[in-house]
Design a protein around this nucleic acid. Structure first.
Lengths: 325, 325
DNA sequence: TATACTTGCGTAAGTTCTTACATAATTGCT
DNA sequence: AGCAATTATGTAAGAACTTACGCAAGTATA
């Protein structure tokens, strides 16, 4: 039988595990049959719990037994699952039920005489299976049992979804190119900034000046503008305005909504700081508004700290930040 | 949540694997949702097979497509499973069906335009998941993926049932004690031999002499008799009859049917040969009947080879064997 | 050229869980 | 005491397969 699993690789892990689970369950059932023990594999956790957690060494003593929920917690199943197993086992006369005297909702379960009569055989089988599995482990190069435990732990720590999301962000950010502004991007530069400014605030005079005349207002005085290109399209921009010989202002940073969540803001910021450093700057300044939470978070990530500087020409500016390079 | 799984250990592997499988499937579904790809995880193997095995690079060309059974073989599911998935995918307009012209039983399946339109996104997701899983592997000490492959292989080579059976035999044979004959076992010695001789043949004069007078016929001339004791009961026996100073005959070997399959014959034989060696024998001889297949197999296992010796006093003997110590 | 396998495929039901919902009984709190 | 929240449990339905079965359609063979 040819299988495509190797090619499909990691996408079909669920199927593969289920498959192996089925093999184990079937084999297990066969082992019970082989030893003539009338027990379904699915009963085992319940049976075992009742066996080990209930004192049945002194037959005369009242054995208190466990409730459905207690068993469920022990074996890590849902109570519904235990409820179903208990029903089945009761039908097979493996369990005895005694109504609780203190709490009418629950009853105490314990093994019937019939069930207890098969325990010695089960004990032997348990030993055999354990020895077999240990033998199997010794034959193996890779420890399936520990691998499962480890994987359970890793996925609990951070889910696959989250991990995939990170991986995606990483991939997409690799597909983003940060390039220098050229006049053909003038319209993109204006549009990208127009988008967010009008969404949260209103266009001010200084905005129009810079957006309409980037050459004159930003580039000629020694500044730079960068464009983020994703799939051939300008999806973000950011300007570095020269304030003095060793100080720049980071401004006009914009990422279109369609392309957010791809780390583009960070890439633009990082690129700008690198450029500023290259140009001999010792600090970079910026102005923003605390309403723009993600932006502020990004600035922090880039190393910016809140400072109090000179009054801003922008109405919307209510926070000033700086990073020392 | 307390779990008893560690204690229950190897008995509940099926459950545990199923559990982990469910986690993977659920997570996978979440990944599809996250990326806005309208695909169920269970469709993936079919989708992927159709994607990779069907030439859809030239839209004008007739794409032959695959049949249900072909897909089932590729992905290693039952055809019924594929049939169900195909039904579901067709309902979701992901598949196109073209009746086969040469064989009216089967139709050829291929991806619909809608399905093909999501392939690029799926391709990206595939890359992300693969990268994630690889990252996960790098974080792990135990390689789950290889462990599964290995376990599948090991269980295919020899099933768990078989392995458990062997383990059981081993355990039971450890519970068997081989002891020297004492007069209190006279009745057991006679009974055990009586059981098999009358089942396959008939008691001969020489039988009655040896079984009724083991002291006189076997022990006094320098021979030995051993009893196999299992759970306080004599379940097998075997005699070593002195033929000459350095040659013994292995005879009167019997294991009761109730206790067969516990390796007892081997233990008796092994013990006898050890004793013969200890007594200075250089070879051990025996007579048997080829009708007794398991016995002959056992003798071979003990090292006996067919020889042609002097005529036997027993009617039933049609094979003679010998092992050189 | 009948007749008997074999093949392809769909349906039904089973397996071993789960989640969602329903229903008492008990507890907590005012 | 009165009512809401919690707890213990059961039932139903669902998920992702499987095996069993039935029924055409095709192939082989006497």
């Amino acid at each position: 039988m040819a299988t495509i699993y190797d090619e499909m690789g990691k996408m079909a892990m669920g199927s593969r595990l289920r498959r192996l689970a089925e093999v184990f369950t079937d084999e297990n059932r066969a082992v019970y049959n082989q030893n003539g023990i009338p027990v379904e594999p699915r009963w085992f956790p319940v049976l075992y719990t009742l066996w080990k957690k209930t004192d049945d060494t002194r037959p005369g003593l009242t054995r208190p037994g466990l409730t459905t929920t207690e068993i469920a917690e022990w074996i890590g199943h849902s109570h519904a699952s235990v409820s179903q197993i208990v029903k089945e086992m009761t039908k097979n006369e493996m369990l005895e039920t005694v109504k609780s005297e203190t709490d009418a909702r629950c009853s105490h379960l314990s093994l019937s005489a019939k069930a207890r009569s098969i325990l010695p055989a089960l004990d032997n089988q348990l030993a055999d299976v354990e020895a077999t599995v240990e033998q199997l482990q010794r034959e193996s190069q890779f420890d399936l049992f520990r691998a499962i435990t480890e994987m359970e732990y890793l996925l609990e720590k951070k889910s696959l979804v989250e991990r995939v999301r990170e991986q995606r962000k990483l991939r997409e950010s690799r597909e983003v190119a940060i390039i220098d502004y050229t006049p053909e991007y003038h319209n993109d530069f204006r549009q990208l900034n127009h988008e967010w400014i009008t969404k949260y605030f209103r266009l001010e005079v200084s905005d129009n000046l810079a957006l309409d005349h980037p050459d004159e207002k930003i580039l000629h005085p020694g500044g730079h503008i960068f464009m983020a290109i994703y799939k051939g399209e300008a999806v973000g921009t950011c300007a570095l305005i020269k304030m003095s010989d060793n100080r720049f202002e980071l401004a006009k940073m914009a990422v279109t909504e369609r392309a957010q969540g791809k780390n583009i803001g960070y890439l633009l910021g990082k690129h700008s700081l690198d450029k500023a450093r290259e140009l001999g700057a010792t600090s970079v300044f910026l102005e923003s508004n605390t309403k723009l939470k993600p932006a502020i978070t990004l600035y922090h990530k880039l190393g910016f700290q809140k400072i109090v500087g000179p009054p801003s020409p922008y109405e919307r500016a209510n926070i000033q930040m700086e990073v020392v390079l």
